[in-house]
Design a protein around this nucleic acid. Structure first.
Lengths: 148, 148
DNA sequence: TCATATCCTACTTGTTAAGTAGGAATTGGG
DNA sequence: CCCAATTCCTACTTAACAAGTAGGATATGA
């Protein structure tokens, strides 16, 4: 019942982009240095975010990545689902209409999974990326202040 | 972000016990037959439930397992935490007071993880085992009815 | 004393997470 | 035009873990 590093690192990348990509494209290299995560791995993760149309890229010199939408219009839910797939605790299919489970009519636990799934989505869909961006900026200021 | 089979099978076992263990001890073998899961594996799972004092056992002939408390007094939350550990999406420690993360003061995502964790626990702590037991009995009756 | 149980723990097997590695393609600036 | 900086792509590696299997030791009611 744990998020993978894709989810954790990917959300951090999005916060990083929210802070730094307003003026110019942000390179993987610079994110890697700030976050302390390998460039190669970040590449793979940001590819998921690009596929979900949450970030856009430019190749070549002066290239890099930036957010497609302003941070106010991106929810943590969109980001995590792009990185982790659905946020349901099981892939039983009566929940998401994939294949079918022949015991579906007899399965009472699926109601539990659905309630969990709904509550997770409810939470993350109501946190805008801008909220985390603001907290991050504030945290960095406070931290810096302590050593002045 | 998925529950393991321990969580899924274990909850099914608890429902099975709620239905069948009122009069007499229930053997692993009978649960295995009803649920279609191997005896050896169920043994390992029920050991977790026993350690959490949710079930008790009797050895030897006529032995087996039964619930410690009536199903009304056991929540799905207790059961899932016994089987899966905490239901937090990350094991970052500012959430559960274990070791410490030196970036804790700078970490804004931990607030997201905490909100998710809280909402999951809120949901599962408010579903009593008796509710699933009742639904299961009802589902079996309906199902049987369709073929009469 | 035996059939039926739990109890205990070592082993196996396949999958996945979490990266590493390295080359191809693109592009702005000198 | 060329080069340095960048994204893009994908194959490979490694370790951990999930999901069981296996089998013997121990206990107990009839």
């Amino acid at each position: 019942m744990k998020l993978s590093t894709k989810g954790r690192y990917g959300l951090k990348m999005m916060i990083d982009l929210a802070i730094h990509s307003e003026k110019e494209m942000v390179s993987i290299k610079s994110i890697s240095e700030r976050q302390g995560i390998s460039e190669n791995y970040l590449e793979q993760i940001i590819a998921l975010l690009k596929k979900a149309k949450l970030v856009e890229s430019a190749r070549g010199s002066k290239g890099g990545y930036s957010l497609v939408k302003p941070p106010e219009e991106v929810s943590v839910g969109e980001i995590l689902r792009a990185l982790e797939g659905n946020l349901s605790p099981v892939d039983c299919t009566s929940l998401n209409d994939g294949h079918k489970c022949e015991e579906a009519d007899l399965c009472v636990t699926k109601n539990v999974w659905r309630k969990i799934s709904d509550s997770i989505n409810e939470v993350v869909d109501n946190i805008p990326l801008s909220e985390l961006m603001d907290e991050q900026i504030k945290a960095e200021d406070t931290y810096k202040g302590e050593f002045q």
